[in-house]
C-alpha cells in the first residue's frame, strides 16, 4: 500500500511541477496588470528552445560536460521564453495593444514554433525519427546519490531532478519578493492602480516589462522541465497539451498567491495522476476527472466575486493598458 501511495505522490509531484512554473510565472506577470494569455505559447517555446539547445550541443561534441549539458539548455530556454515575453510586453505596454488579442496570438505563435521545430528540426540535419537528447535529460534527472538510500521517504521526495526543487524555491522567492520587498510593493501597486503608482514616481512601463519578462522566463522553465525531466529528453508535438491553460487556471485557484500555487499545482497534478494512472478507471470517468480542475477553478472564481473580499480579487487593472494622459 505504502508503495502505491509513494508512487502516486511521486507522479503527482512530477505532474505538478510544470503547472507550478507556469502559474508562478503568470502570477508575477499578472501582478503588474498584464493578463498574459500567451503563457501556454511561452511554455512551448521554453521547452523547444531547451531541447534545441541540448540537441545542438550534444551533436557538436563527442564528450559533453555535465555542466554545459545543463547550462546550455537552461540558457536557451530562458532566452527563448524571454524573447516571447518581450514580444508581449512590447505590444501591450509600449504599443498599448489589447492584451487578450496579443496573448492569444502569442500562444498561436508559440505553439507553432514549438511544434514546427519539434517536428522538423531533424530534417534540417537530414536525420530521421524524432528528437531525443538522452544525455541532457540524464543530467536534468540526476538527483542526490544518497536519495534512494533513504528508504521510501528519500525515494518519494528526494529523487527528483533539480528543476523540481527550483520550481518550489522560485515560488517561495516570488512570494517573498511580492510581499516583503520594496520593488515587490511597487510592482503590486502598478497592477492595482497604475495612475497612483505613476504619481508616486514609479516607472509603470518599466515594471510591466520586467515582470512580464521575468514571468515568461519562469513559465518557460516549466516547458523545459516537461521535455527534459518528464518526458526524458524527447519531443512529441502537442505533447505538452493544455498544461499552459491549466497553469492560468491555477493562478485563479491560488488567488494570485505564489505560495498557494505550490499546493494548488500539486492538487491539479494529483488529479492528472489519478486520471492517467488509476487502475480500473474507465476512459470516460478519466475524462470527468480531468474536467474537475476547471470546474473547481470556476467555483473559486465565482466564490471570490460573490464574497468580494478585497485581498482575493484579481489585480484591479488586470487586462488594461496604461496611458498617462488618459487620466
Amino acid at each position: 500500500m505504502i508503495s502505491v501511495i509513494a508512487l502516486f505522490i511521486k507522479s503527482t509531484i512530477s505532474q505538478g511541477i510544470p503547472l507550478l512554473f507556469g502559474s508562478t510565472g503568470e502570477i508575477v506577470t499578472e501582478k503588474s496588470g498584464n493578463l498574459n494569455l500567451g503563457i501556454p505559447g511561452i511554455m512551448y517555446v521554453g521547452g523547444i528552445s531547451g531541447i534545441v539547445g541540448a540537441y545542438l550541443y550534444e551533436h557538436s561534441t563527442s564528450a559533453p560536460s555535465a555542466f554545459l549539458l545543463i547550462l546550455i539548455p537552461l540558457l536557451s530556454c530562458l532566452i527563448g521564453s524571454a524573447l516571447m515575453a518581450l514580444i508581449y510586453a512590447f505590444l501591450t505596454a509600449t504599443l498599448r495593444a489589447n492584451q487578450n488579442v496579443t496573448g492569444l496570438a502569442l500562444t498561436t505563435f508559440g505553439v507553432g514554433v514549438g511544434n514546427f521545430f519539434g517536428g522538423s528540426l531533424l530534417s534540417f540535419f537530414n536525420e530521421k525519427g524524432s528528437i531525443s537528447t538522452l544525455e541532457t535529460a540524464k543530467c536534468f534527472k540526476a538527483y542526490l546519490p544518497f536519495a534512494d538510500k533513504l528508504g521510501v521517504f528519500g525515494d518519494t521526495f528526494l529523487s527528483f531532478g533539480f528543476l523540481t526543487y527550483l520550481a518550489i524555491v522560485i515560488a517561495v522567492i516570488a512570494s517573498w519578493y511580492l510581499n516583503h520587498t520594496r520593488p515587490g510593493l511597487n510592482l503590486r501597486a502598478v497592477g492595482e492602480n497604475p495612475a497612483t503608482a505613476d504619481a508616486a514616481g514609479i516607472n509603470v512601463i518599466r515594471h510591466k516589462y520586467v515582470s512580464t519578462i521575468l514571468g515568461g522566463m519562469i513559465a518557460g522553465l516549466g516547458g523545459l522541465y516537461f521535455v527534459m525531466d518528464y518526458t526524458g529528453g524527447s519531443w512529441t508535438n502537442d505533447g505538452f497539451g493544455d498544461r499552459g491553460w491549466l497553469a492560468i487556471a491555477i493562478v485563479i485557484f491560488a488567488l494570485w498567491k505564489p505560495i498557494s500555487a505550490i499546493w494548488s499545482s500539486f492538487i491539479f497534478g494529483g488529479l492528472y495522476t489519478i486520471a492517467i494512472q488509476m487502475p480500473g478507471l474507465s476512459s470516460s470517468s478519466k475524462e470527468l476527472i480531468w474536467m474537475l480542475p476547471y470546474v473547481v477553478t470556476i467555483a473559486v472564481l465565482v466564490a471570490t466575486s460573490l464574497r468580494k473580499k478585497r485581498e482575493n480579487q484579481p489585480p484591479a487593472s488586470l487586462g488594461l493598458s496604461y496611458f498617462r494622459e488618459d487620466r
Binding site: 505590444l91 504599443l95 495593444a97 489589447n98 496570438a105 502569442l106 505563435f109 505553439v111 507553432g112 519539434g118
Partner: peptide, 24 residues
C-alpha cells in the same frame, strides 16, 4: 517542401503581431 504543418501558426502569429502593433 516537406515541412511541418505548424509553420502556418508561426506565419499567422507574425502577421497578427504586425497588425496588432500597427493599431497603435
Amino acid at each position: 517542401f516537406q515541412l511541418n504543418e505548424s509553420v502556418a501558426d508561426i506565419l499567422t502569429g507574425i502577421i497578427l503581431f504586425f497588425i496588432i502593433g500597427c493599431e497603435f
